[in-house]
């Protein structure tokens, strides 16, 4: 099975029904994508398939027909994506475990809706659970990232 992840092509020998999440983590060694629930209830495993945010725990390897982007492909510590920069500036993270998924979901939202309202943010982000309760800062950081992206 051929898989393109963050622009790199991989040959993966695994079951078609193996979730993309575990292919990323345990076979490709990309640990930024997190396991939280395994049933698409928490969003910690959110990645992009093409440009769409999907739950990688519910995406079978055999169904991956587009390039995959993970948090590692969005930006890196020395080269932050605007959403990541806003996350850092607003000190969004507490434990941080859900934030890869939050950021991938937020970046997908901003790609589709460059200036989201609070209600659009709530709609887009409600599948991403945070038990530390970072939601108020997630809202603020998304607005800040939207403003930044608009500036260019």
């Amino acid at each position: 099975m051929r898989l393109i992840v963050n622009g790199t092509t991989h040959e993966v020998d695994a079951e078609d029904r193996m979730p993309l999440l575990w292919v990323l983590r345990d076979i490709l060694g990309l640990h930024g994508t997190k396991y939280g629930c395994g049933i698409a209830q928490c969003g910690a495993c959110t990645v992009w398939l093409g440009g769409e945010a999907v739950r990688s725990c519910q995406t079978a390897l055999g169904d991956v027909d587009q390039p995959v982007t993970t948090i590692e492909g969005l930006g890196a510590p020395g080269a932050l994506h605007a959403v990541q920069q806003a996350w850092v500036t607003h000190q969004v993270a507490q434990c941080g475990y859900c934030q890869s998924g939050q950021i991938m979901q937020a970046a997908a939202l901003l790609a589709a809706t460059p200036a989201p309202t609070d209600s659009e943010i709530d709609d887009a982000m409600q599948g991403n659970l945070c038990r530390c309760g970072t939601y108020p800062r997630i809202r603020a950081a998304i607005h800040a990232a939207a403003a930044k992206l608009k500036e260019g």
Binding site: I71, E72, P77, W87, V88, Q91, V92, A93, G96, Q99
Partner: peptide, 12 residues
């Protein structure tokens, strides 16, 4: 700045 913010915002 609180420590750990960059790591927790980049999956690292």
């Amino acid at each position: 700045p609180r420590k750990g913010m960059v790591a927790r915002s980049t999956g690292t």
